[in-house]
């Protein structure tokens, strides 16, 4: 039990995928202008990452490992994740239109997102078992969501502030992201 709690805290705070590992910066800057889109994106990432984590674990241990093909991990994971997202999108559109309306526009954005691929590869590198893989995927995604929502809230405030012209929009966004990252450095060393 304890190992799970440590894993959750480690994934969300200490090794935050956005602010400590710098993966998935594209949506971090892209959809963080409004809280509404940030929350939608966070939900979509959680949804996709948990599924991708499970599927890639199966692919790794039941297809690649038996044939000693782990050097094809990155390539096959990209293929699997992209197909999975496509499939999920089609499934949602047909069967759960309400969920599709909420997450639909974010799903294609995640198809080839490095945060998703990155987490799947980390899971394999750390050699987690299946349950740990699920917990880790969920927690990394939650950490992604946390960082995105925090950042969106700050950016909404920045909109109202008087920012010097050359620093407006993405520039001030990057500066803010850097500071947020520095703040997360405070968690460093909490868990080894």
């Amino acid at each position: 039990m304890e190992s799970y709690i440590v894993l959750v805290i480690s994934c969300i705070f200490v090794n935050n995928i956005l602010l400590m590992q710098y993966l998935g910066n594209c949506p971090f800057l892209g959809v963080s202008k409004r809280m509404e889109t940030a929350v939608g994106m966070a939900m979509a990432v959680i949804f996709v990452l948990v599924m991708a984590g499970a599927v890639t674990w199966v692919v790794n241990y039941y297809i690649l490992k038996p044939y000693d093909l782990e050097y094809l991990r990155t390539l096959s994971f990209i293929l699997v994740i992209a197909s999975l997202v496509q499939l999920v999108e089609m499934f949602l559109k047909k069967n759960i239109p309400a969920l599709y309306a909420g997450l639909g526009i974010y799903l294609p954005l995640i198809t080839t997102n490095c945060a998703v691929l990155g987490v799947c590869l980390i899971n394999m590198k750390e050699e987690y078992d299946f349950i740990h893989t699920l917990v880790s995927s969920f927690s990394y995604a939650a950490g992604f969501g946390l960082a995105l929502v925090l950042f969106a809230a700050i950016r909404e405030r920045i909109l109202l502030a008087r920012v010097p012209k050359p620093l407006q929009d993405t520039s001030i966004g990057l500066v803010t992201a850097g500071m947020l990252s520095l703040a997360f450095f405070g968690f460093k060393g909490m868990i080894h």
Partner: peptide
């Protein structure tokens, strides 16, 4: 050879799967 087979097979299965899914989950 194994590597080619696995990647090719994976690609073929996923491609076929998606093709079938696009029919199954078709929304007008």
């Amino acid at each position: 050879i194994e590597g080619l087979l696995v990647m090719g097979g994976l690609g073929a299965i996923l491609g076929l799967g998606l093709a079938v899914a696009s029919k199954v989950f078709y929304v007008y």
